[in-house]
Design a protein around this nucleic acid. Structure first.
Lengths: 120, 120
DNA sequence: GCCTTAAACAACCAATAGGTTGATAAAGCA
DNA sequence: TGCTTTATCAACCTATTGGTTGTTTAAGGC
């Protein structure tokens, strides 16, 4: 019953476990940006920022498009939702003191359009 | 304006970036358990599981209590909420296509009782 | 064509994460 | 007291992260 998106959860949570990457997410929530723009506020090299973006991209939290020699990075909100969906399973179970897990998952799926899957 | 809970977010997201630790969270959502009980379904040593629990404890996602020679581990749902709060900031901003960030944070704070803080 | 800019690729390095085995501590039970 | 159970501590090994510098590719501007 376990799905193969374990690695995607791994990658997504790992991607957010770094303040630089979280600030990149924060910046991208206000619109797309290039690597140079994203690197500017940090005291690390652009190569390092580029690697951070690769990590975010691998987790599918961001996507890169091509615009001439620019390569703007865009946020992918759908993946962020997948994370809250995972967390909320357990959070809601505790809050509701054992009202059915199925009910919780189904209400979440209905609200967000996300597939209700088996937790890992 | 930046708060010092950056490390707590680091620790919490890192803690969830591992399938073993996510399964431990899943198990604990059904009630407290000892290290031995938690280790049973895994093909790794108890020492390794103990280390995983240390990681979760450092992130304040779980707490340990003392009960004779047992040391039951309990879930701490409040910390899970802090993670969804962080993610939802940016998720909601995108969905609302730039309705005020302040409004979003305040509505979240009102709904969950969480303090509306400056994102890192 | 040549130069500049944007960004990726490659090799390398130090620090840490996840795992192991072995020893130790603390609490109950005989 | 001595034995068993529960769980941690300590040392060690290997793979991976996060960072660096240096080189290369790709697209425009002149």
């Amino acid at each position: 019953m376990d799905t193969g998106d374990d690695e995607l959860l791994d990658a997504a949570f790992l991607a957010l476990a770094d303040p630089v990457r979280r600030r990149i997410i924060s910046r991208l929530s206000r619109g797309p940006a290039t690597v140079n723009e994203l690197a500017e506020p940090f005291a690390i090299t652009k190569q390092a920022v580029s690697k951070h973006i690769q990590v975010l991209e691998q987790a599918q939290l961001v996507t890169r498009t091509r615009d001439a020699q620019r390569r703007p990075v865009h946020l992918n909100p759908a993946r962020l939702e997948a994370l809250t969906a995972w967390i909320d399973q357990y959070r809601l179970v505790r809050e509701g003191q054992f009202r059915s897990l199925d009910a919780v998952l189904q209400s979440r799926a209905a609200a967000s359009g996300t597939q209700a899957k088996d937790p890992s």
